[in-house]
């Protein structure tokens, strides 16, 4: 993950966001993921798992001996054993085609925070897993268009409170940091100029 450090809170929170997963195998004793405390998790059941777990289960190849064990334990003859991973990942609802279409239409009006507090980080992680050229373009265009608005708001002292308030509430964490940076640097220059007058 390069720049993301082990203690990066944002990276940890991104990892905790849920993604829909479909189990490819029946796993005994994992029913509690579905809220079924004692039972098994059935093949084909859809569960929302945190990204870190989903990613691990989807990418880790199942050892043949384990598959054999599952077979012995559960005896599901219909179970297809040619799949090599436990679950298949799906796109999280925050990156559903509906959302991408809305972003294509007008990036400024979408409330990213309601979709996912770490929208862009989640997007970057998903793009690590899936090859989606279209999503790359939509996300980078969105980021650029919204960054321009954020810069405007950061330099306009009334913008963040007045008509821009709705937009500001919809910023995800990356964008909030961007806003804070832009605001702080403008403030530093203003402070320097006022300090000059005090001397």
């Amino acid at each position: 993950m390069g720049s993301q450090s082990y203690y990066d809170v944002d990276a940890i929170l991104t990892d905790a966001q849920k993604v829909p997963c479909t189990f490819e195998l029946t796993v005994p004793g994992l029913g509690y993921l579905e809220g079924n405390m004692t039972g098994d998790i059935q093949q084909g059941s859809k569960v929302e798992l945190p990204l870190w777990l989903g990613e691990m289960l989807a990418l880790r190849h199942v050892q043949p001996s384990y598959v054999f064990l599952f077979k012995r334990l559960t005896l599901p003859h219909s179970q297809s054993l040619n799949t090599s991973s436990l679950v298949t990942l799906d796109h999280p609802s925050a990156l559903a085609p509906r959302v991408l279409n809305a972003l294509k239409a007008d990036p400024r009006t979408v409330d990213l925070r309601a979709l996912a507090p770490h929208f862009y980080s989640l997007g970057a992680r998903i793009l690590d897993l899936f090859e989606e050229d279209d999503m790359v373009h939509v996300l980078s265009e969105t980021f650029k268009a919204r960054a321009a608005v954020i810069a405007g708001q950061a330099h306009n002292p009334r913008g963040a409170l007045g008509e821009g308030a709705d937009f500001m509430r919809g910023l995800d964490e990356t964008e909030r940091k961007l806003f804070r940076d832009a605001h702080d640097s403008a403030k530093a220059v203003r402070t320097w100029i006022t300090d000059l007058k005090k001397k």
């Binding site: 970057a124 980021f143 650029k144 960054a147 940091k177 961007l178 940076d181 832009a182």
Partner: peptide
């Protein structure tokens, strides 16, 4: 000095989105 943190923030954000691509 004033524009640095914002511009680098945008560039970094874009780079993260486009890294894998």
């Amino acid at each position: 000095a004033e524009g640095r943190s914002f511009i680098t923030g945008v560039v970094d954000g874009l780079r993260r989105i486009r890294a894998t691509y």
